[in-house]
Every structure is written in C-alpha cells, then in structure tokens.
C-alpha cells in the first residue's frame, strides 16, 4: 500500500496532548464508575501495573541494559525510562540514609496538562497510574518496590513527588507446572 505524503512527525511518536486527553477521559470514566477516590486510585494503580509488566519488555529490548548494581543504578535507569516514554526527565533526590528509598521529582507532568481537580476530590491521586507502572516494571526484573505519591502539583504542592521504596529482591520463581 502506498503511503500518501510524508509524515511530518516521527511515526514512533504521538502527540502528547492526545495522550493527556485520553488519560483524562479514562480517569473521568473511572471516577464516574466508582464514585470513590480511593477506589479510583486503586484502579489506576492496577492499570499501571499491567502497563509496567509489558513496558519493561519494550525498555529492555530497546536499551539492551543489563542488571542494576544497586538502587542508585535503578533510579538512573528509571530516569532514562521517563525520558524515553514520557519525554520528561524527573530529578532523583531525597535518598534515605539507608539508600533504600528515593524520590522522583516531576516538574512537568504530561498526564496533568489541562487538568484541574474539582472540589471534593482531595483524595484522588490523579497520576497514580505511574506508581503502578513502576511497581509492575520493576517486579518483572525481580525488584519488589512500593511506589506512592507524596506531593502533587494538582493539589497545590510546588512539585509532584513520587516516592519509591525498595522492599526486597524477588527470587527466581519457576512458573507453575514447569519443573
């Protein structure tokens, strides 16, 4: 099939506003279906987890990166992944003294452009899907982490802060029925 004209943009990219508005439509729909902020946060986290589980394959295939030496290494790779998939570079800071916990600071977040939270949704973590993505992706490389938002620009904070805590290293488990 002949393709008419030249694509003005990279075919591997998509307009970020389409993405922003699509995500907005999804959150609005879930909010309508569940009518409860906490339940919506859970749904978003679960969807993010499903995305992360698959996204890690794409990441590994494209970057060919090997295992991480430590959590700092992981944090750097997460930063790179944010650049690859969301075209933003969060800063990595607020390391805990033990080095098992850090924060990703998002100065601009493509998910929340055009977004304003209506009154009465103080508990809604609008970008919670990102926490799920991190958890899902890292679980697939044997790292169990907890990820949660501690600050959110939508709620009036000066930046959006995603906290990541290393929980444990998962042992290679054989899939059921394959021994």
């Amino acid at each position: 099939m002949s393709r008419q004209g030249m694509r003005s943009t990279d075919p591997k990219k998509v307009n970020s506003e389409l993405f922003t508005l699509t995500y907005g439509a999804l959150v609005a729909q879930i909010l309508k279906d569940y009518e409860n902020d906490d339940e919506v946060n859970r749904q978003l986290d679960r969807m993010g987890y499903n995305i992360g589980v698959r996204l890690i394959e794409d990441y590994l295939a494209r970057t060919g990166s090997g295992r991480c030496y430590d959590l700092r290494d992981t944090a750097d790779k997460l930063q790179m992944a944010f650049k690859m998939y969301l075209s933003i570079t969060p800063s990595v800071t607020n390391w805990s003294p033990a080095g098992d916990e850090f924060s990703l600071i998002l100065e601009n977040n493509p998910l929340t452009e055009f977004v304003e939270l209506p009154e009465g949704h103080g508990g809604l973590k609008y970008s919670n899907i990102l926490a799920g993505v991190l958890r899902g992706a890292l679980e697939m490389v044997q790292l169990e982490v907890a990820a949660w938002f501690v600050q959110d620009q939508l709620a009036g904070d000066s930046c959006t802060e995603l906290r990541v805590k290393f929980l444990k290293r998962l042992e290679d488990a054989m899939p059921v029925g394959e021994d």
């Binding site: 591997k12 998509v14 307009n15 699509t22 899907i129």
Partner: peptide, 30 residues
C-alpha cells in the same frame, strides 16, 4: 496552599510528543 488557576498558565504550542508505546499500552488498558 495556593492553587494556580489553569487559565493563568500560558497555552503551550502543543508540539510535544511522547513514545507511541506509552500511548499504545494506555489505550490497551482502556
């Protein structure tokens, strides 16, 4: 906390782009 009204922010040019895989996976979840 002081919330910045969305209308006080300048409108972006709308030229920013993101990876198609990100959109593809989000749409899949939808």
């Amino acid at each position: 906390k002081s919330k910045i009204n969305i209308l006080d922010k300048p409108l972006s040019k709308g030229k920013s782009e993101i990876n198609i895989s990100t959109f593809g996976l989000l749409f899949c979840e939808i």
